[in-house]
Structure formats: C-alpha cells, structure tokens
Nucleic acid binder design. Structure first.
Lengths: 367, 367
DNA sequence: CTGAAAGCGCTAACAA
DNA sequence: TTGTTAGCGCTTTCAG
C-alpha cells in the first residue's frame, strides 16, 4: 500500500532495541537469542522471536560486525569474471558456502597487481570473515600481512612460497605431462605450448610437465614452440597465428595452458586454413563447460574446478572456526578427457636437418 | 619476516585513532581528508596521508558504514551462477561498478523464493548501498519494503507491477516476435515454444511475441507445442524429448526461451535421431557466449546482456547519488542473430487430418 | 538466566 | 581550518 509514494522520507530502521522493547526484555537478551546462545529460557526465546517476526527485524551487518559478531560473509578474489574457469570455481564456492550459511563478496582484480593488493587489504578490513584467493598472482605482497593479522584465507590454484597457507590445487604437472604424452603417442613431434603467466604457480608446473613429457619421448625442446600466453582467447589467437606464420616447420599440435587459449588457437588455425584435427591437433587444460560445446569438441585436461571451489570454501570455514589448525594443502586429480580435437599428424618433414627423413620429397605436405 | 609464525596472536588493527595520533591531529581531521573533504590545509592532508601510508592504515568498512559513511559496495542478487546469462550480465555490472569505484557483493537465490526474499532484506541491512536485482522472481514480496526504506535498487530483466522502480530490460516481445517470424518465413508451421517461468516478466513478453507472430502468419496456436521450461538445459532437454515422442505431427522448429534451454533441445533432437537444422530448426534467446560455440552455431535473439548490466549499475549509482530522481525504465534493443541452427522444414505431412494438403500446395517450403 | 554498560571504528554535527 | 563529542546497532563482559 502507498506504493506510489515518491517521498524521500525513509522509514526508520528496526533495531535490536525495538525488539527488546517490544518483547519487554533487554537488548542483551535479544542479542543472545539471536546469536543462538544456549542458556536462555525457552519462553524468553519465543517472546523474542515473536517480536522479531512481528517487527520484521533484520540485524544490521555492519553493527554486528563492528561489535565483533560473525558476519557470515566471505570474500572471493578472482582475476576476472570470465564465464569459464572462474565461473565454475565460483559455483563450487557458492554451493559450499550456502551450505555453511555464508554469503559471498566477489572482487575482481582484472589481473592488475594494484587492484589485487588493494582488494586484499580492503577485504581484510571489511565485513568479511575470510578470503578465498582464486589464482592470485601477487601473493607475496600480502600473504604475510594476512597471516600476521590472523585473517583466514585459502589459496586456490596457487602456492605459498613459504608453504604456510591452506591451498587447493590440482595435479598440474601430471596433467600437463599426460596431455603432452598423449600428443607424443599420437605421433606428434612438433608440439607447441602456450604457457600461462608464470606468476601463477600452476603455469610453471604445466610447463614443467610439458618439458618432461617431451624429454621422456626424446623430443628436443624447441624454444620457438613455447608461446607466451596469458589465459586469454585473444592472446591464444595471436601467438598461434604468429607461430603458424613464422616458424618452420610449423607445429603439428598445440597444447594450450587453458581451454580459453585453446579456443583462440583453434580460431587462428582455422583462419590459417588448417583443419582440426586433421591438419593440426589442439589440446586444452581445465575442461570448462564450453570445451565440450565447441566444434570440434576440445580434448583437454580436466581440472575438477567446481570441486576445487567447494573444497576451498570448506577449508576456509574450518579455518575460521579453528584458527590454530595447521595449514593444509589439498591436491585434486586432473584427468585427460579425449574428445575430437586431436589426431595423428599428417606426414610432413622439416626442411633442413630433418630428423625423420621422408621418402618422396622433403617439403610436400601430404595433403 | 617472521612468516613461519604459527602463533595465533593477531596484530591489533590500525585504527583512525592511530593515524590521528601519528599525524598529531584529531580523528575528525583524518576522517575528513580520508573522505576527500575539500577544506583541509594541503600540508595537513599530506601529513595525514604520510601517516596512513606509514602505518598501512585501511579503514574499517563496518565502522564506516555504521557511522553513516559510504561503503562503496553494492549488492547483486542473481538467480544462480550459471556461466551464460548471469555471468555476462555480471561482467557488465562489474565493469560499470569498478568505474564508479564500487565493489560488488553477489548473492544467489537459486530460484528459491525464500532465499530471494531473505537475501533482499539481508542486503538492505548489510554494508551495501544499493541493490541490483537480476531477473528476480518474487519482487512483490519486497519491492514496497525497499521503497519504504528508501533503499536504492534497479531491476534487470523484470518489471515492477506498480511501475515505480528503475528497470533495465530489452525488447522481449519484439525479439520473440522476430524469431518466430523468421521461422515462419522459413516455412515452418509447427513451431514449438519452450516458455520460461511466467513469474519473470520477460517470459510473458516472449510468449506474447511468439503468439503474435504465429497469428500474423495465420498459423493456429497449438497448446501442445507450448512447453513449460525453466531456463535450465535439463528441462529443455526433457520437454523437447517429450514433445518429439508424444506429439503428432511433431514440430519442425523449436523456439527456446533462452539459449540454455535451446542447448537442451538440441541434445534431445539429436538423441531422437534428428539432424539440426536439416530435420529440425532450433532458435534460442540471449546470445550467451556459448551460443556461437555449439555445433551447429545457434541462431538466436541477442540481448545486450553486458550492456544491460552496465546500464543498470550506472542507474543504480545515479540513484544512490540522488534518491529523489524519478524512476526510469530503459529498454534496450534485441537483435536476431542468424547462424546455423535453422533451415526450411523438410517436406512432411502429418498422418491424419493434415490441415495442410501438400501437392503443389500453398505451404511447401521454398527450400 | 537476564540486565547494565562499555566499547567496536568511524562520521557528522557543533564548536572553536 | 580543525577539534570535541555524540552516537550508528550490536556483542560482550560483569554483575545481579
């Protein structure tokens, strides 16, 4: 009623004092029942709840938080809001958090050091009870501060150099190794790798896995085939374009550090007139929802993204409850998901020093 | 230093009082320079900033908020965290908000009335200065409350029955009309429609557009071809399966209320042995990023999702700055995006009572 | 089991 | 231009 009201007068907020008055009790008692304190007479509890109900009282979070109560809100710092990796991890977080009856404040760093650092301290000084850091890049700037303050946090997809934080990660080295091995077993010898930002631990690990697999298959490491990406589709596109145009012989397979980069590589390959997987194989990492949607469906290394979010959120809640527990590191398994974007290479030879001579002319691609 | 510290002692927080003391000023003055108050001596300002810097002071949000200051945080209530529609809208919001130097608290209702209503009141009592409601379903339960409290909010993709709220939407009727017309023009006469939850205004509008286009093409409305969906892929799959199995003659085209449902329909059609678009045409609504990724690429009605988020966030910020401004309604244009999932229907006749005789007849598709 | 009262850290009058 | 002070709404000792 009176909904067409354009007045700017606000109704005054209902406070705990109002409830106390209505129930004929003190604010302290009301506060007790509201925070689930055990030793309150049942009849009192009822009286309070009725007043709350009747007045439509909802506690003020800032006030509660300032006074030292629980806010049931946790902060999540993500590099961006892309609809793949981050979205899926966040879904897992959301799920676990709502089970724990907590809300979620989302902050985006947009890959900028200043923003990331600023947000972390802002979060630690906000209503938030804890912090989930998703693939953060500049941890060294604030991890000590968080620990000194006793502020609970969990790292997702990133390590603490001091090994003194809760972290959730997946078997990055292993996953990258298997992906590369798969390509090798298919017969590829010129395998490009789009590497992620090396400030992210997982990127380093994946690079390591790639190198190890090549070594184990006696395939020499070619520096020109290591492409610097940044997890973005556009960059994946550009570096692929570049390698296809400038490196000879070109790679017959590309292993991208994440699916998004792989999509960029697919675009570039196609634009270069290459068929996937006939002319070039492409493999990704993450298995974001889009991976099985693209054409051809992307072969990739699955990271249990959602589960990572869930586990991290659970760990955080546990740490909030018991700040003295020792830091844990949970490593979840990756898994190679074979779909349609990889195939054995076409016969082809490099122009000079070809280590695999090829009867019938050096450079003619077998079409 | 001292990073291996496992003690639970927390360093005490640096407060505005510490800064005041360090700078040899009063807290009021410090507060003034921190909130950008104009009339402060330059030298004073400098002194404060140095102290802040030196002590690493960061304001406490709860305290500031409680005392009536700005929190620069706005709440966003979304139905879920799916990686399509919501993600894209949220990206737009995030972008506009970070321009306005605001943070974002995300709440998910998971389509549950209780959660939605609860969250709204929680948000209105939290650190948040305003609220963005993305496709909310149970507005009648709290819109009046928000207005009475003078709490700023903007509706995205939903209307206020009382026409007394800021809202951002797109031309749903028009978009649905064009999609349906496109199908009609292709020669389809049995066009199924997967309708969304009718508690969402846009769903009603789209249904209206669908009906109008059919009527304008003298195609009778067949109730069995109106399928009740809920924006989820699974449901889209199920209702499509159902209609394909049980309705005779089956539809030759399906218009889904959103892309996600369309994906479900594609799955079902394929499982039914139908080729897309040869045997059945499918069209979606939204144009989420995945739409151009699936195979075949989905023809759909584009909603400027990101822009909707942006505009809404901007409107909200404006309203926060000037609570007395009159409510506005911004309607952005949709656009039919033709890709690969639609084609003229195959020749086919219904087994009995076929209302459309075939030979040399009127409705034979132009192929 | 319940009440009184002291802050939590900050902003915003009101003085000076 | 700056300082003093009274709360904001809640939790939490400390007494009953």
């Amino acid at each position: 009623m009176n909904s067409g009201n354009l007045d700017v007068k606000k109704k005054p907020r209902v406070t705990i004092t109002d409830v106390a008055r209505a129930a004929g009790l003190s604010v302290a008692t009301v506060s007790r029942v509201l925070s689930g304190y055990e030793f309150v007479k049942e009849s009192t509890r009822t009286r309070v709840m009725e007043a709350v109900e009747q007045l439509g009282y909802v506690a003020s979070l800032p006030a509660r938080s300032l006074a030292g109560g629980r806010s049931r809100t946790i902060g999540v710092l993500v590099p961006n809001l892309d609809v793949g990796y981050v979205g899926t991890v966040t879904q897992g977080i959301d799920q676990a958090l709502s089970k724990a009856n907590c809300d979620l404040v989302l902050y985006t760093s947009h890959h900028q050091a200043t923003k990331e650092i600023y947000h972390v301290s802002a979060i630690a000084n906000g209503i938030t009870e804890g912090l989930l850091l998703v693939a953060p890049q500049f941890t060294s700037a604030y991890l000590d501060m968080l620990r000194d303050r006793g502020f609970p946090y969990v790292l997702i997809d990133q390590t603490d150099a001091n090994n003194n934080s809760d972290v959730v990660e997946s078997t990055n080295y292993q996953g990258a190794y298997e992906a590369t091995r798969y390509l090798c077993q298919l017969g590829h010898t010129r395998i490009a790798f789009i590497v992620g930002e090396l400030s992210v631990w997982s990127a380093v690990e994946r690079l390591r896995g790639y190198k190890a697999a090549l070594a184990d298959h006696q395939i020499p490491l070619v520096p020109e085939l290591i492409l610097q990406g940044d997890y973005q589709q556009q960059t994946g596109y550009e570096v692929t374009k570049q390698v296809l145009n400038n490196v000879n012989p070109p790679p017959t397979a590309i292993f991208a550090c994440n699916d998004i980069s792989a999509f960029g590589a697919m675009d570039a390959a196609r634009e270069h007139g290459l068929r996937i997987p006939d002319d070039i194989s492409i493999i990704g990492f993450d298995d974001i929802p889009q991976a099985s949607l693209v054409y051809p469906k992307l072969t990739t290394v699955r990271q249990p993204l959602q589960q990572m979010g869930q586990v991290a959120a659970e760990m955080l809640v546990e740490r909030i409850m018991d700040p003295s527990r020792l830091p844990r590191r949970v490593t979840l398994a990756t898994q190679l998901v074979i779909r349609d974007s990889c195939a054995p290479p076409q016969l082809q030879v490099s122009d000079s020093q070809a280590s695999f001579p090829e009867t019938g002319g050096s450079l003619a691609p077998t079409n």
